[in-house]
């Protein structure tokens, strides 16, 4: 089980300080939603969590190991990262795209060892892609492509999965489907961190929340404890009403409160 620890993480983009001393603990096997307005530092936090960007201060630990001290390959086996609007540039078949997720486990030369082949089938199955395995990835619809990219990310069975905006550009059904699949990974023991703008989905599925604004952590903890009207209002600068009914919580932004 792999808990994620942020110890006073600060980061710069150019001269600007985009993350300022983020300290938090993300429990293992949780689906954690990173929420906040545009430019809050969500993507930067994910870049740092994935080890692709180094913090100027602080560290991120996965199971007590400093992520930024791990070797490139070791890290690649441990965590998977899906950037925003991930795609494929060549008409490669879905099966081969998914197989690319095994890159860190491959020997220096030669093809995929037969021991790894079942993992590809498992990932295709988990993402409902068995019927599309021979389809060129460039011919997939938005929802299918999102599933293919997720299959690519989970094929190596990472302990940590980081996803930037899994619902961007998806219709409601596919957006729900995408988040549900991420949630399903946590039951397999995977720690999942996603940045997400769709608060209804975040509240419905995320186990815990990291709320950031202007590079600072406003709140973090279990979703139902942390998310309040006052938190969301100060997070987005828009009055918010949370309404609870039999279908769960929904978030309403009150347009009248926006000063132009």
């Amino acid at each position: 089980m792999s808990a994620l620890h942020f110890h006073g993480v600060s980061a710069r983009r150019g001269q600007r300080l985009v993350l300022d001393g983020i300290s938090a603990r993300v429990p293992s096997g949780h689906l954690t939603a990173v929420i906040g307005p545009n430019g809050a530092g969500k993507s930067t936090l994910l870049d740092i969590t994935s080890g692709l960007k180094r913090p100027v201060q602080g560290s991120v630990e996965l199971d007590g190991k400093d992520l930024h001290r791990l070797g490139r390959r070791e890290l690649a086996k441990l965590r998977a990262y899906l950037p925003q609007r991930a795609g494929v540039d060549w008409p490669i078949t879905v099966e081969r795209v998914v197989a690319l997720g095994l890159t860190p486990a491959l020997p220096a030369f030669g093809t995929i060892p037969s021991a790894l082949l079942p993992a590809i089938d498992d990932a295709l199955l988990a993402c409902d892609l068995l019927g599309l395995r021979d389809r060129p990835a460039t011919q997939l619809s938005g929802g299918e492509l999102a599933r293919a990219m997720l299959a690519r990310a989970i094929v190596g069975d990472p302990a940590l999965l980081i996803v930037d905006e899994p619902t961007a550009g998806l219709d409601p059904r596919h957006a729900i489907d995408a988040v549900q699949r991420l949630k399903a990974r946590t039951t397999a023991g995977c720690t999942v961190v996603m940045a997400i703008h769709d608060l209804d989905l975040a509240l419905a599925f995320a186990d815990s929340i990291l709320a950031i604004r202007d590079g600072r952590l406003l709140a973090h903890g279990p979703t139902h404890e942390v998310v309040t009207e006052s938190l969301l209002t100060s997070l987005y600068d828009v009055p918010v009403r949370l309404s609870r009914d039999g279908d769960g919580i929904s978030v309403r932004f009150l347009k009248s409160g926006v000063s132009s």
Binding site: Y81, D89, V97
Partner: peptide
Amino acid sequence: ALGEAQAES
């Protein structure tokens, strides 16, 4: 083929 960010990851 997956883009630079994914390749790096």
